[in-house]
């Protein structure tokens, strides 16, 4: 994989809106905590991060973005913007999971196995466990609180408070780390940035029984 020296990173998947620019070892970032408003703030924040860094869009070699799990609408905001910037600049776009970034943020401070627990805004959680080096020990999945076996793990993420009553110190994605990781550990990313929804669109087929029309099969 190519070594990228100038990278733009975007995150809108959880409860922050962030943009960061990696420029040959130095990182410049912008981040604001917000529950909504990502679609308004993201692009101006990317422009501010670029301005701070002195890097022009034309010099960007790759775009990094969080692909989920997270809020469906939020992650699509970042993914659509990242893919469009990649398209407009003719550069590749790479996705990374929110759980992977948060795990690396945690082990960077404290080299212990971690379990990332994210709030799904429903009754369950997005969960993934990692070893002390930040390597995944399981796939990210949707779990009910009772099913989460947290022994031996440090719990992090915005779902920890609802699960245990105690706040986690690490809940916000560090876009600066994401930008740096694409330069230093590109193998953590997926090219094309496929969304990681972790669940279906949650719809049921219409149950209402309407009359059947004999010729309906022939209609297109």
């Amino acid at each position: 994989m190519a070594q990228f020296q100038k990278i733009l990173a975007l995150d809108t998947a959880l409860n922050d809106c962030s943009a960061a620019v990696y420029d040959e070892g130095k990182v410049f970032s912008e981040s604001v905590a917000m529950m909504q408003g990502h679609a308004e703030h993201l692009i101006p924040m990317a422009e501010r991060a670029l301005k701070k860094s002195g890097v022009d869009y034309a010099d960007i070699e790759a775009v990094a973005v969080t692909a989920g799990p997270g809020a469906f609408t939020g992650l699509r905001i970042g993914l659509s913007a990242a893919r469009a910037i990649g398209l407009a600049l003719g550069v590749p776009v790479y996705g990374i999971t929110t759980t992977q970034i948060l795990a690396l943020q945690a082990v960077r401070e404290n080299a212990e196995p971690v379990m990332v627990v994210l709030d799904t805004k429903r009754s369950d959680y997005y969960v993934q466990s990692f070893d002390a080096g930040g390597k995944p020990l399981s796939d990210a999945s949707v779990m009910n609180g009772e099913a989460i076996k947290a022994d031996g793990f440090v719990l992090i993420g915005d779902g920890v408070e609802r699960l245990t009553g105690e706040k986690s110190a690490i809940t916000a994605i560090d876009a600066a780390l994401m930008a740096e990781l694409l330069a230093t550990k590109p193998e953590l990313f997926n090219l094309g940035a496929a969304p990681a929804y972790l669940r279906g669109a949650d719809v049921t087929e219409s149950k209402r029984q309407n009359r059947i029309f004999e010729g309906a099969q022939g209609l297109k």
């Binding site: 869009y57 659509s80 398209l87």
Partner: peptide, 14 residues
Amino acid sequence: LVGMMAGKAIASAR
């Protein structure tokens, strides 16, 4: 939002 973000991103990048 998907379309608007793509539009804004292209406008910004170009």
